[in-house]
């Protein structure tokens, strides 16, 4: 944990949203990364709540390339990619 975090300051994670989830966010485009300041006790559920993305719309939650559940505790510098189910054929 950094000195800044010990002072109670925010961590930053990189978020990318794909395949229609961008419609829940203002001025965010498909696949383009943006930074989000998160508190050091936040999990993925807190992040989705903060971004106002409905949890039932999110199918895959990759953190640094690995699928994680909603209770995954975020770490400074995590790279989060969010996908809806893209299931048509």
């Amino acid at each position: 944990m950094t000195v800044a975090l010990l002072r109670g300051e925010y961590m930053q994670v990189e978020v990318r949203v794909f395949s229609g989830l961008e419609k829940f966010l203002d001025q965010k485009r498909f696949g383009e990364p943006f930074s989000v300041e998160v508190q050091d006790n936040w999990d993925l559920r807190s992040l989705l709540d903060h971004l106002s993305i409905p949890k039932e719309q999110v199918f895959t939650k990759l953190v640094n390339g690995k699928h994680q559940e909603l209770d995954y505790k975020l770490n400074d510098g995590d790279r989060v990619s969010l996908f809806p189910p893209v299931g048509g054929g």
Partner: peptide, 24 residues
């Protein structure tokens, strides 16, 4: 898979690369 204006693809080589259940 496809939906609306978007699509995605991935190849699985069993035993050496992530499979579909690793991410879904």
């Amino acid at each position: 898979g496809v939906l609306g204006f978007v699509g995605q693809a991935m190849t699985v080589i069993p035993g050496s690369t992530p499979c579909l259940r690793c991410i879904f």
